[in-house]
């Protein structure tokens, strides 16, 4: 499986958006070399606002830029762009439904070395509860690129969660994309796994493991956390005996919670794979964290077996 780096593609796509739309602007709080927004800064210095390490000011400034017809992309690590600037996103951006795009880079545990303060386990939860907000969590670099083009045209605020590392590419570059789209990555009939971000590839690996044991697993990519296409979600549950959700985020409040809210009348048993109400920690590499916090294919497989027994 080909792997591609999500944040690099994010930076490159931002430049492409800048070429097509002269009103695209980008704001950065001194993490441009990590978020890759620096690429936009090199291409369009007059449309790049380096605001220093001041995320709150950055978010409200983006609101002001949107109010003059600009399409602002706000860049920082997910913990800072969503958490540090929460009330600014809420009040300056979401209440007036402004078309500001907030990038949560190095999301989840993907900034493995930096530890708890830099790893977002709560960003989808806090962005999801904001009225007007759209929450996106791409599974790979190609989907990231497609989402960004859709975001440029989208009305209203968006939050996009970007993984720092190389992830396997499942998205067909030629397939049409729209915000809200739910994609079945692998067909199966016993259990459906709704996965987002890095957990899509982990869940596909789980499905391959389970196939050898005679268990058929459908893997569905939930990359628009909000608004959820509830009808499509229900369709994905047709004929299965249980549901598993898998996310690199606290199991409270994230994609799994959103799925459970949508399917609370389905009567199907559900198991949620994700961080069990804990912060992360530093590690030598990303893999070690996925193992420690039980985000491995074996963990998804165990959850599938558990719902089948339920």
């Amino acid at each position: 499986m080909e792997k591609k780096n999500c944040r690099t593609v994010y930076g490159q796509t931002l430049v492409e958006l800048g070429k097509k739309y002269e009103n695209v602007v980008a704001l950065e709080a001194d993490l441009g070399k990590s978020t890759m927004s620096y690429m936009f800064g090199e291409a369009f210095p007059e449309r790049y606002f380096q605001v220093g390490i001041a995320e709150q000011n950055m978010a409200s400034m983006a609101a002001g830029l949107a109010l003059t017809g600009k399409i602002p992309f706000v860049n920082s690590f997910a913990v800072f762009s969503s958490g540090r600037a929460y009330d600014q996103i809420r009040s300056s951006i979401c209440i007036p439904n402004l078309s500001v795009r907030v990038c949560g880079s190095s999301a989840g545990l993907s900034d493995y070395g930096d530890g708890k303060t830099h790893q977002s386990v709560d960003d989808m939860a806090i962005m999801r509860v904001l009225p007007h907000m759209t929450v996106l969590s791409p599974m790979d670099a190609v989907e990231t690129e497609k989402m960004m083009w859709a975001m440029a045209e989208h009305k209203g605020p968006c939050y996009i969660r970007i993984n720092r590392n190389d992830l396997p590419v499942y998205t067909d570059p030629n397939e049409e994309y729209h915000i809200g789209k739910i994609t079945t990555i692998r067909e199966g009939s016993d259990v459906v796994v709704f996965a987002t971000g890095v957990m899509v590839s982990q869940s596909v690996a789980a499905a391959e493991l389970l196939e050898k044991e005679g268990i058929s697993v459908r893997v569905v990519n939930i990359s628009t956390i909000k608004p959820l296409d509830v009808a499509a979600l229900k369709e994905c549950c047709q004929g299965v005996k249980g549901i598993v959700t898998a996310e690199e985020h606290n199991v409270m409040g994230g994609m799994g919670s959103a799925v459970c809210e949508a399917l609370c009348d389905s009567r199907l048993p559900v198991k949620m794979v994700g961080l069990q109400d804990t912060f992360g920690r530093s590690a030598e590499n990303y893999q070690l964290l996925l193992e420690k916090y039980h985000l491995m294919p074996e963990d998804v497989a165990a959850a599938v077996k558990a719902v089948l027994k339920a």
Binding site: M58, A59, S60, M61, G64, L65, T68, G69, K70
Partner: peptide
């Protein structure tokens, strides 16, 4: 901050 964003947009 909102005003500053507006000012720069203008």
């Amino acid at each position: 901050s909102i005003s500053l964003g507006m000012a720069l947009g203008l």
